[in-house]
Simulated scan of single mutants.
Amino acid sequence: MNKKLYILGIRGVPAQHGGFETFAEKLCLFLVARGWDVTVYCQEEGAGAKWESVWSGVKRIHIPVRQNGALGTVVFDFLATCDALKHQGLFLTLGYNTAVFNLMQRVWRQVNIINMDGIEWKRGKWGRIAKSWFWLNERIGCWGGSHLVADHPKIFEHLATRVSKQKITMIPYGGDEINTANVNLLGVYGLEPHKFSVIIARPEPENSFVEMVRAFSSQRRNHKLVVLGNFSPDVNPYHQKVMADASDEVIFPGAIYNTAIVQALRFYCRFYLHGHRVGGTNPSLVEALGAGCAVIAHDNHFNRWVAGPGAVYFNDEKDCAVVLDNLLPDEEVYFKMKNSSRVRFNERFRWEQILQEYEDLLFKWYPSDLEFK
């Protein structure tokens, strides 16, 4: 009989919503090819009974919910966890935001591995109630999970203040290596290869958008900065500020979900600017390394471990402006940075390596007679 794995905590596969979904898709296909029986819970809009389908050999249990936004996600996670109690096998929960529901799995003595993601309750975008909810669920996830996965050494250290190190395995996020891209896709945005730099992130204060955009716009660059992300300046004051502070050399094309276009923007950009100040292994930064981007990143221990010594780091707006002043015309350093990114990517972030580490962990925790710990 094939080993059974049930994946909770995401909206579903194939990936449409972000890093965890992309990881789940990669892991599912990898495990199915190796004989695993994999089931993923998928969130659907609307009402009615659950239904099942199969995608690329992956079983999917679709659960419709009437609620939208964060409330809809909470309701879906609750219903998915309740359904999971009916099944036998190994369970993998991606994220701890509703770990309180996973306590039911502990009571049922199911083996549930939880990927603890980042330190969500430290993010500046959340209010006091949301931060309290995330803080509480982080504690519950640490206690209630059979085993924990940290995606970064600093996340491992953080979790080790909650539980013993023996209960945690560090496995980072992975990425695909990009060695070519369609240059013609740049024309839609009026771009030429290596004559633009790019930011790809959610436009939140903790991701340093204002600092990077103002640093770039501090003088005429004869260079473009492409800022990808969902901007709503009419309703979001922070988005309004970012766009108001931008020079006419900054382009805001919105969020782009076409993989080929995003790959072309990464592959042909001069610099990839990464302003994240909190979090673990950021998927977008890993993907930039895989595309051989020369990386300019905010200086913190999360980014330094991922991008390595070959990237260049900044602390604030003034610092970022100086970095851009120095690096934009320096061809020699630019090519050294690109080569360093590929070296770092191949050292630690290839999907083949990451997915094998996950399968090894799943095998370790699979035995049906394993007692809950």
Rank of each mutant, 00 (worst) to 15 (best):
A49E: 15
V322S: 04
Y272W: 15
M212A: 10
V32P: 01
Q67R: 04
V75H: 01
N207E: 12
F314C: 09
K50T: 14
V13G: 02
K338S: 14
I114C: 12
S56E: 13
F372T: 03
V250T: 13
R304Y: 12
L327K: 01
I256N: 09
E371W: 02
P253F: 11
Q263I: 03
T161K: 09
A47L: 15
G308Q: 10
L29K: 13
L225I: 13
V149R: 12
F216M: 11
V213K: 08
N230E: 15
R109L: 07
T281S: 11
V163W: 00
K336A: 09
I10D: 02
E332R: 00
L328H: 00
E206W: 05
V58C: 04
N222R: 10
T180V: 12
F345Y: 06
R34W: 00
K50N: 15
F363E: 14
N346G: 05
G144E: 00
F363S: 11
A49I: 08
N236W: 01
R270Q: 08
S53L: 03
A291Y: 14
E352C: 07
N97Q: 03
K318W: 05
A311N: 07
S53A: 13
F91R: 00
L8P: 10
V235I: 13
Y268D: 11
F271G: 11
F76M: 03
N68T: 04
L191Y: 14
F101E: 00
F78Y: 06
V333K: 07
T169M: 10
W108H: 05
F101W: 01
I251R: 00
C28M: 05
L228C: 15
D316Q: 06
Q263G: 07
G187K: 14
I114T: 14
V65S: 05
G145I: 02
G290N: 07
T161L: 08
Y268V: 13
